[in-house]
Amino acid sequence: MRNSLGLRSLIEEIGGVDQVGIDERVAKYATRSIKKHAKVFGLKLATTMVDLTTLEGKDTPGKVASLCQKALRPHDDSDIPPTAAVCVYPAMVKHAAKLLKGTSVKIASVATAFPSGQSSLKIRLAEVRAAVSDGADEIDMVINRGAFLAGELARVQDEISAVLEACGEATLKVILETSELETYDNIRAASFLAMRVLRPGDFIKTSTGKTSANATLGNNQVMLEAIRDHFLATGVEIAMKPAGGIRTAKEALHFLVAVKETLGDAWLNQDRYRFGASALLNDLVRQMVKEKTGVYQAPYTFSESTTAY
């Protein structure tokens, strides 16, 4: 087995990452001048890519219902498109399904003992099956970082395969949790590990959003380049989802620049690229309204905040 040779031989096979080069490259993405039509295009596109997320212990059916309404119609203005999906815990899938079945908005559910993944495989697979049977169109799984860092790569990959099988028709998103993988080399290795068993159109995803470090342009870039290299080698198109920490429209545009310049237009759609975010949608809508009216808007117009600030 190729993967049982361990992490080092995998990295030798797929090539390492030039960390300084990546950091320098992504720093340039933030300097692109995106104005007027291009900006409106980017904001709209980003909106259609949002996986509107709520993953909290205090989630209720009511809160999920209002999230679904927001995903379907982010603003009064009908020019503003619906988001790609809502992303909820498995227990909330059936509540979301009542509102979203038959609409363009998909239901994504985190499963596999999210966010740590520290549970037996049997329980994790049962969770995936339950979410899919409740109506989830997409499953966000976490990889077994403990096994990955211990060098048990084959086990990590086998678990992904097992989850994939449990998904059935549902799209799978594999969360690498980049903040716990320590280095860009490891992120690239984990990306390849996942991509080699995924179907075309399945996703690799940066983070759970539950750790201190989240999606950055740097680890996004490493994963985009892994997707590109995998595509060039095999022709399999894997999709990408950065998640956590992307709060402003401006940051979202920087991520889109990275996609455009690394993978090209073929990846600039909601089937190939997503944002896992909760606050981002409010800022995207705020900026779109600003572009339309020419007037800076107050953030509380677009959220449930009740403070004067």
């Binding site: 020419g294 007037v295 800076y296 808007q297 107050a298 004067a308």
Partner: peptide
């Protein structure tokens, strides 16, 4: 003009 129109200034 921006002081006047900015909706976040109360």
């Amino acid at each position: 003009p921006t002081f006047a129109s900015h909706a976040h200034l109360r």
